[in-house]
């Protein structure tokens, strides 16, 4: 049993290729998460705007992203843009575009939620000691919102890492794509069933990456109770 595992992993640099797949997954996730955080904060603050048109349009954006599966956007940008509009985007660009659109919407909603969850009285008592509106936001509301924001954002990060496996469908060699290739090669060329070991390793990789992040989220949640 174990011997078959060794064979599967050692065959044609399989293990190395899987590691490269993991590296691709991590790169895509890191880029998508950073972009989403940046734009998510901006859109989130726009969602708190006092202007109704701004609130409605950001809301519309959020709901559109939420209603439609991420995969649909992936296909939409990859196939529709190139076929119909003759815009050929690199597959990595398509992935970053899709995941940033999605991540931005989710983070924006988390930011909005965190800010609106701070009781109105906090603002009033800040004003009552003579702080200006800006000072109240900076010293009273934002620090409290940030603490409430942290667990949700960390959760979203793990979700985004896992969801990058969807880019398998447009042929980017990330972890799931590579493992699929390895399994197929093993089955057709060497007539050796490798699915158990390969997907077992994929499971382990995702676990090693996401588990610590999820742990951080838990401890943040605990520390945010006051």
């Amino acid at each position: 049993m174990l011997a078959s595992a060794v064979k599967v992993f050692s065959n044609g640099q399989n293990f190395l290729r899987l590691l490269e797949g993991l590296w691709m997954t991590l790169k895509l996730s890191a880029a998508a998460v950073s972009l989403s955080l940046f734009f998510g904060f901006i859109v989130g603050l726009l969602m708190l705007s006092s202007r109704k048109t701004v609130r409605t349009s950001t809301r519309f954006y959020l709901e559109t992203i939420r209603i439609v599966p991420v995969l649909t956007f992936l296909f939409l940008f990859y196939y529709l843009l190139s076929r119909t509009f003759k815009i050929n985007l690199e597959s990595v660009t398509v992935v970053l575009l899709t995941f940033t659109l999605w991540g931005t919407a989710e983070i924006a909603d988390l930011v909005r939620g965190a800010f609106t969850s701070i009781p109105r009285h906090q603002k009033e008592s800040g004003l009552a000691v003579g702080l200006t509106d800006l000072q109240v936001q900076l010293h009273i509301i934002a620090p409290q919102a940030a603490r409430r924001l942290a667990p949700g954002v960390v959760n979203l990060v793990t979700r985004m890492i896992k969801t990058t496996s969807l880019v398998f469908f447009i042929g980017i060699p990330e972890l799931v794509t590579v493992s699929q290739q390895v399994v197929e090669v093993a089955a057709y060329q060497h007539n050796r069933p490798a699915a158990f070991w390969i997907y077992g390793l994929v499971f382990l990789f995702y676990f090693i990456v996401c588990w610590p992040i999820s742990k951080i989220s838990k401890s943040l949640e605990k520390r945010c109770l006051y």
Partner: peptide, 20 residues
């Protein structure tokens, strides 16, 4: 108002201390 509020101290029903 920030100037006025320096002269007017207010205490609320729900204390509203800054928890952080």
């Amino acid at each position: 108002w920030p100037l006025v509020r320096q002269k007017v101290g207010m205490v609320f029903q729900s204390y509203d201390l800054f928890p952080h």
